[in-house]
Design a protein around this nucleic acid. Structure first.
Lengths: 344, 344
DNA sequence: GTGAAAGCGCTAACAT
DNA sequence: ATGTTAGCGCTTTCAC
């Protein structure tokens, strides 16, 4: 067996160009290069050109870790969300808002896992990210106290952080449920069912509670009509549908507590869906593809996102101000599924 | 108006604890703290305890930028994808594979924008991420040549990188289309339509070409049956559906080129969908919710992801080895929509 | 087994 | 307007 010569394969690390290299190549001082890189205007035009030529020739790109170490800011804000790679209109808008503010967003998944969340946030803290946007999971975030006291800028979205005082921006879940409920009541419905997220989840808890409050206040029945199931549990949704819409006194209307549940409920209702008024919580691409098209309570991702970024920048400027909690209005989008009237 | 005293609001930056602080608090040398933090065993048990106590007392978390500057590795790999906040089974699996390999994944969106992609990848390069997983957009990635030559470890997923030599892991689009086509031919279909992604996109181009090749080889007609539309363009899909399934010689079967198109096509086919055999490219959560449930050509995200991470770590170990391109098999999942037979 | 000192790549005081 | 120097927080020789 003949051993090939490994020519053309420079094994040793290729020693990226550094600012000193650029300075040497351009025949100027290190500081001058730094000034050019940072757009400082007090450099003679000729030197600027020489430096830029050297930068181009060496393909120099400033090392951000050195920069960050010296300047103390990262230019990055982290987004710790339940899952990147999952539809998340808020995250999409956060990216836009942040880009508009000249910040880079780097996202990591917490996978609905408390330990992983902790690891992810801590990792962002150790990297000294300028801020963190967190979709919190789990009940107690007391573990964050030292970091928040140490100057970590953090804002919670979708749910508040408990056990510690931090900024949060939330949707108005209660009003959302109220809107849906009133809409159905006005169409003549008496037996209105609710199927939504597990009540261990903050939004699930809040929406289910709001529903119960509405029903009680309006003198509507509750028994057998409220079902909270863990996210994505198809069998549980099916069972809930059967309970609510079977039996002697079937419901005539349905409020679903999140996008997933809406889709699953519609799937299990099948053809019956046409004989039931349905209002779903959360808008989604699928909502418009369902038959009938889904009437929804829509959150306002753009406002949520811009508020979150605003809270974050405000806190970065003033790390120890009092925590603020902002509630963003929701709206109802009428598409057909929720407008079935019932005779008396 | 009385001005409140701002007591309890320490305005000045809270000077996070540093290793020197820990060392001082524990009454040991800086190096010893470093050793403890990094799990070096050659430290006396008593000192280890003192150091750990100090670390806990000061809530010390090592600053990764200092660490990275000194060690030269980041412990992070970047994922530059079309959109975080959009379903992306591969990204999900990449996160798992990477976590298993002890690497943190930070994801950023390129938004299908060539300039943004460039900015994102460059930013990761400046931060000296250990590697980058890229879902490339645009035709020419020549701009990456200096970075790749400089030791950037990068692997492309879903589509290859053109204009420069880099690792890539792809799905077997050609075989996928062939499977779908054969499946429909065997069910007796002669007029098979194809609606898929724009041919400016690599996968769109590859799948459409494969379809044409299949049809030609099988002596099936093509005229009016192949439609490529830009992603998410509902009107274009509607028009394509009308062309393919209206007129004097309507098609009896359909292959869709991606998940979006599948959903839109089914929406526009409406009730007609039951009289047409449909095989979609790409599996998705929605595929199982559609009526009828969608028979699909499914990619293998887990294998794609683990292959990508393996290629990346291999390249990190050996930055200048020859580029490899891996093709991952696809499979057909039969669910009902594609099994309608046609008499002769 | 432990600590002092050098230095990673950069920016910011401080000269000049 | 430009260069010299110190130092950000850490790891790693290198002495002891």
């Amino acid at each position: 067996m003949c051993t090939m010569v490994t020519r053309g394969q420079p094994k040793r690390a290729p020693k990226r160009a550094t600012m000193v290299d650029v300075a040497r190549a351009a025949g100027v001082g290190l500081t001058t290069v730094s000034r050019v890189v940072n757009g400082n205007t007090s450099v003679a035009a000729e030197l600027v050109d020489r430096v830029n030529a050297a930068i181009a020739a060496l393909d120099f790109q400033p090392d951000e870790s050195g920069r960050q170490l010296r300047r103390g800011v990262a230019g990055v804000i982290g987004a710790a969300v339940r899952a990147t790679s999952q539809p998340n209109p808020v995250l999409r808008c956060v990216e836009e808002s942040a880009r508009a503010a000249g910040l880079m967003i780097l996202a990591a998944s917490t996978n609905d896992d408390t330990d992983l969340e902790r690891e992810v946030v801590m990792s962002m803290w150790r990297r000294r990210f300028d801020g963190v946007i967190l979709e919190p999971i789990g009940a107690d975030h007391g573990y964050l106290a030292p970091q928040l006291a140490g100057g970590l800028s953090l804002v919670a979205i979708d749910r508040p952080i408990e056990g510690v005082d931090a900024d949060a921006v939330l949707s108005d879940n209660v009003v959302g449920i109220e809107m849906a409920f009133r809409h159905l009541v006005q169409a003549g419905h008496r037996r209105i069912a609710y199927i939504g997220d597990d009540e261990r989840i903050y939004t699930g808890r809040q929406r289910a509670a709001a529903f119960r409050a509405c029903a009680t206040a309006a003198g509507r029945p509750l028994t057998g009509l409220v079902h909270t199931v863990s996210s994505g549990n198809e069998a549980a949704v099916a069972a809930a549908v059967t309970k609510a819409f079977g039996g002697r006194y079937p419901a005539t209307a349905l409020i679903t507590g999140n996008a997933d549940t809406s889709v699953l409920a519609l799937k299990w209702l099948g053809a019956d869906a046409r004989r039931i008024a349905i209002v779903g919580f959360d808008d989604s691409d699928t909502a418009r593809l369902l038959m009938p098209e889904l009437t929804v309570i829509a959150q306002d991702p753009a406002t949520i996102a811009s508020t979150a970024v605003a809270l974050l920048t405000s806190r970065m400027a003033e790390p120890f101000r009092k925590a603020r909690r902002v509630t963003v209005p929701v709206s109802m989008i009428i598409r057909g599924s929720g407008e079935l009237r019932i005779g008396r």
